[in-house]
Nucleic acid binder design. Sequence first.
DNA 1: GAACCGTGTTCCGCAATCGGGAACAAGCGA
DNA 2: TCGCTTGTTCCCGATTGCGGAACACGGTTC
Lengths: 282, 282
Amino acid sequence: MRKDDSTTEDRAGAGVRSVQLALDVLEAIAFSGDELGVTQLAEKLDVTKGSVHRHLHTLVERGYLVQNPATTRYAIGPKSRLLARFAPDADLIQVAEAPMRELRDRLGHTVVLSALTPRGALVLATLASTSPIEIGVRPGSELPFHASAQGKVLLAFAPRPVQERILARPMEKFTERTIVTRDHLEAELVRITRQGFASAPEEVLLGINVMAAPIFDERDGCIGALAIVGSIQYLPETPDADTVAALKDYAKQISRRFGHGRGPGGASTTVPPRAARRSAAG
Amino acid sequence: MRKDDSTTEDRAGAGVRSVQLALDVLEAIAFSGDELGVTQLAEKLDVTKGSVHRHLHTLVERGYLVQNPATTRYAIGPKSRLLARFAPDADLIQVAEAPMRELRDRLGHTVVLSALTPRGALVLATLASTSPIEIGVRPGSELPFHASAQGKVLLAFAPRPVQERILARPMEKFTERTIVTRDHLEAELVRITRQGFASAPEEVLLGINVMAAPIFDERDGCIGALAIVGSIQYLPETPDADTVAALKDYAKQISRRFGHGRGPGGASTTVPPRAARRSAAG
DNA sequence: GAACCGTGTTCCGCAATCGGGAACAAGCGA
DNA sequence: TCGCTTGTTCCCGATTGCGGAACACGGTTC
């Protein structure tokens, strides 16, 4: 469906092709939250069964996947789980969990946590709204920079060279209100930097609005974005002051746990910036 | 150094070569617990810088790694962290953490948690002994089946086809006491199955002994091994009955949390076997 | 300031490698 | 038993990634 329609900018190729496919396979299984078979994967990724099978074999051999002998289908293996344990800095997902829940309970909207990736704003975790009707995004998906509040926030507070590279890319139009020109996006970034949050009314889907605020670490680097998602009726384009305040407040709260705003070498409640963790206790 | 010296059984090759290298790069960085540079990686993995660089680029592009602009070196990225969240069954590492700590405090030995991989017993987590002198293993490393208590336990309780495939492999000799013949190993597996635990005195390193007991899920599948490591003076070859009892007891305790021994559909304190987890709450 | 390392990055041609496609085996239900 | 679907294997040929070397750049040391 959404196959990489070779844009102008990837002259350097997209990297190592086989690795790309291997990661596609891995992610397809991981983010489906279920086991998948060779045939399913083959048609989902639009490659031959033989190719998928070879990659599956490699990933199983390495312990990243496991073939369920009963169903003959493939699932995430132990090695994949292990990778996360070695993240150089404290786990954003874990730290943000409690504040996210509080924010959700307070505002009622779906809450989303994202991080920067060259491809967009990676959805790390979501917390469904209190409403019976769910409006959300799938963890693992990558939201486009130009058409999401998270993407715009992460971009606005990213280092200059990163901005440059991304701004040069063509922008796909999703709705009438999607930003499609570089100038427009740059102006938006300036505004976001000034006001400390972003909103993206109907930029990717009509009727839906998203608002996002940045999360910083102890060196003022933007390491993520906290966002709320909702129907535009409840999350209007010109946002309610209380809502904005709450969002920014919780984002700041998470930032503080990473040592932001107190200089390097934080207090006791702070997550150690670069803790050496070598055991399960980590 | 240890490049695949084409054994008899891998006629199908070792899988997709580029993917192998990509994973090597990823793991080298992950399990080093630190940032690594192109040159370091190139010599560690014994490939050219150009090659490493291309793979690094791909992994960064996909969000699995991040290049630190300050040091220009590479570290684990957000996507790697995310993968772990999508493990199909409850996180063994997390569930085992508390029992591991109790066992460590009770016996004083280093405690290790492992899972099965085609290459060996993957070390998921360790908890250092109470002694000032540390005897342990690096999380992420894969212990050989024939020369580790964990490997032997996992193999003993693995499905028959898996056993077959592994038993056919040649066995490297580490010490005088390493098991190197198939017959010897098979006899050992029978004994392990009967007595419910394994020990591996001086099989990989002189002076060191390891004892391991299996962890089961609700369907009696062996999903891991709990082990204690120590100098052979304190963890003798003919083990103390109390020590064995404690090890088996804690392993069973973890198994119980996965619903083992009460049939499918466990009680409230049980980890749900296949919980649908789609949010940070998972 | 210049020569010197040590990085990370880029380039290019050759050959191995992976992908396409189709045939094969194996389970399952009708 | 026959069909349908699945996972697995095979082989050929062009693509693609590898090796090797050159390049750019920053920090040190004379």
